[in-house]
């Protein structure tokens, strides 16, 4: 039914949040190869394969973000090349909210401290764990998660973006939707939206740690990596 009066004012942000909730991709499974006898190789191969499939999903998801397809193809590429790891890491942190000392890369691929350390992923897991703690303390919910993920997409600082104004417009639209969402749901906490946005520096820092980790794996070699994953890693270097 159509909202009226004061309810109508609440419409626009709710439309965006509902849209983002529907656009949220199905969860992926990591499916570690039980026949791989080398635990480290199994962990790293599983992680890189999962990240490659996440990438495909993230690219498909970005097309559903309001206004993203109105950017030029070149700018869509520049934006995705600069923020895909932030989007990926935010998803992992959100999945890990319920687990204090574990990182949930996928439901069937959960790494504790020891498993991570053995595979050389100790620093990455610690960084994602720190980010997850921040969101746990904030009790980040699903609506806020999808809003924040969309904002992270449009928060690109890529120097290759040609029409920065168009990207700024998308960012403003989503920022406004977050402000409206929080002012409706938590009028008693006017700092809520700001608190969420203040997690973006840690998100970028964590994505930087992920980049260093993946680049290290690539440099050392021995772990199969798909072409798209390599292409996107290269784009960030």
């Amino acid at each position: 039914s159509m909202p009226s009066g004061k309810e109508a004012d609440k419409g626009s942000s709710n439309v965006i949040v509902s849209h983002l909730l529907v656009a949220e991709p199905e969860k992926l499974f990591a499916m570690p190869d039980p026949l791989q006898p080398d635990a480290t190789l199994r962990t790293l191969t599983t992680l890189c394969d999962l990240a490659d499939r996440e990438l495909v999903v993230i690219i498909g998801w970005a097309k559903h973000i309001p206004g993203f397809l109105s950017l030029s193809l070149a700018d869509q590429m520049s934006v995705l090349q600069s923020v895909w790891l932030e989007v990926l890491v935010l998803g992992v942190a959100f999945r890990s909210l319920g687990c204090e000392d574990e990182v949930v890369f996928a439901e069937d691929f959960v790494l504790d401290e020891e498993l991570s350390r053995v595979a050389g992923l100790g620093e990455l897991s610690a960084a994602v764990g720190q980010l997850a703690r921040r969101y746990r303390a904030l009790q980040l919910d699903r609506e806020e998660f999808v809003m924040l993920k969309a904002i992270a997409l449009t928060n690109s600082d890529s120097v290759y973006i040609e029409d920065t104004e168009a990207v700024q417009k998308l960012r403003d639209l989503l920022h406004q939707a977050l402000l409206e969402l929080e002012s409706q749901r938590r009028p008693e906490d006017p700092r809520r939206a700001g608190r969420l946005l203040l997690t973006l520096p840690l998100l970028r820092q964590t994505a930087g740690r992920a980049l260093a980790t993946f680049y290290g794996i690539k440099t050392r070699g021995g772990v199969p990596m798909h072409k798209l994953f390599l292409e996107m890693l290269e784009a960030m270097m």
Binding site: H19, V22, A23, V56, I59, G60, K63, H64, L69, L73, A74, Q76, M77, L80, Q81, K227, L228, E231, M232, E234, A235
Partner: peptide
């Protein structure tokens, strides 16, 4: 751009998203 062939292709393919 040659270097980013796969991303380019994925973005170009079905440029219009599936109806939600």
């Amino acid at each position: 751009k040659e270097k980013h062939k796969i991303l380019h292709r994925l973005l170009q393919n079905s440029t219009s998203p599936v109806d939600l």
